[in-house]
Design a binder for these strands. Sequence first.
RNA 1: GAUUCAGUAGCUCAGCUGGUAGAGCAACGGCCUUUUAAGCCGUGGGUCCUGGGUUCGAAUCCCAGCUGGAUCACCA
Length: 571
Amino acid sequence: MLSEQEQIRRQSLNELIRLGVNPYPAESFPVTATTAEILEQYPEQNKFEEVSLAGRIMSRRIMGAASFVELQDESGRIQCYFKRDEICPGEDKTMYNTVFKRLLDIGDIIGIKGYVFVTKMGETTIHVREFRLLSKSLRPLPVVKEKDDKVYDAFTDPDQRYRQRYVDLIVNPQVKDTFIKRTRMTNSIRNFLNEKGYLEVETPILQPIYGGAAARPFKTYHNALDMTLYLRIANELYLKRLIVGGYDGVYEFSKDFRNEGMDRFHNPEFTQVELYVAYKDYQWMMNLVEEMVEKVALDLHGKTKIKVGAHEIDFKRPWKRFTMFEVIRHFTGIDISKMDEAQLREVAQQLEVPVDPTMAKGKIIDEIFGEKCEPQLIQPTFITDYPIEMSPLAKKHRTQDGLVERFEAIVNGKELCNAFSELNDPLDQRERFEAQLELGRRGDEESMVLDEDFLRALEHGMPPTAGLGIGIDRLAMIMTDSNSIQDVLFFPHMRPEQKKEAPKPEDFTALGIPAEWVEHVINAGFASPDDITKEKPTKIHQMLNGYRKKNKLQIPALKLEEVQSWFETKN
RNA sequence: GAUUCAGUAGCUCAGCUGGUAGAGCAACGGCCUUUUAAGCCGUGGGUCCUGGGUUCGAAUCCCAGCUGGAUCACCA
């Protein structure tokens, strides 16, 4: 059932057609200026004496024979002035009185031609000489009003904003801005990496063995090959194969998929940039990260200090650097650098950090860090030299036993990137995989699987390489001061809407529809008996037999009399 | 997955200890030729998320479910 306003708009649509106005014309409409250009450049340059632009009607103030309309295009909004005798110079005032005043609505997309002037109240406005309907809108838009920077009746319901992002983008200009910033951010990173001479590549999303990170995957199935495939949780092992192949710098903006919980920092699919550079180490990579993120801040904001929530974060180089042991000592006063697993368990207990028996030494350290240190690191900080157990793809530390050459950058209490001097010793790598398999046997569902082909690649020899993964969504949240990952993803994952209740087969059999047909009637798109009886019997007869033929159903075709009997059962 | 809060007109929200559902904007009909959260007069619009229960009577109380938010757990 359509709402009253939707019904009225459909009536208006029919009325327009009756008046010879095509509500969805095919021809292109010439656009010679954007609202932003006009607002910026008028009246300094005397050049908007003949403009043609298009956009969506966002508000209307009708005053009899004259009206003001706010028109919104991609760049912003501008006020337009419609005057009856100008729109309709002759006797026939239909175009203004009927088409414009009665049949157009907020949300309709129109094209206008006219000239720019300034009203008595000082607002730059387009004096419209003619207009053309370009697309009729059949649904009412939320009407958001604004005065003195105060917003009234803002469209805020998160459920609707995320499910109907198009509406969100239409009525909430800041949202559009956020996503423009996100794209500028990825452009900035891409330019930076391209200027360094690294090659942007694409690697498989469907992987027979998921690897490169510790996470649970999404599983899917390939029919032709009759095999299980996984959506990638990372692309690390593929990019390293390319380093083996002889590219010295490769990167990929990678949509990765992890089958885990969702919250304001996690979406099942998310974006990372991974970068691998041959003949470099993690110290070198730290410098690159600083340089790159500082540049991103400058490109987006023109400065390195950025407001994020209640904090001001400064990305100016150099960032603070701590080793994992240093930072734990700094925040807890405890030096864990010489401790074994049992001692670490004791420390965890003492610090009230929850640990469980499946956790090995590295995981316990990670828990202590995550609980006691990470949330306190607001300004960009590098944490280096992680325990070997939790970094099966990183190279052993050049001087410290039991550690690897790895760093993470922490910003605003969250991990922003993860990087290491990559492990290129194939024998060591095999042992690390085997240690992971052992963790898996202990019950760790996120332990890594052994990838023989990756080991084969390493056995051919991979140059010493520095590798990096940066969470693009996280960086976008920081750079746009967004509180939730949903605010930097156009279409965050949501549970499906279920407006209609599932069709009940009994309802159809009650109508007299043969049992063997009911399933197909439902599949053909009829959700309730009413969906059938509101049509003509002849049409239903044709549709269902057409469906039978198309799907080669092994059941007898319907006779028209049979279909007609359903309608009589109804009455 | 757990806890908790919310779901009422197209949108934003009121609706107290149970007693026939309200406002602003939007819509519809008038008036209004430089208004701007335009204004003035009038009108219509509801599965009160869904399903049960208690009750003479439920938007309101109870139970279950659905969807979303926040927090927690897993994780980036």
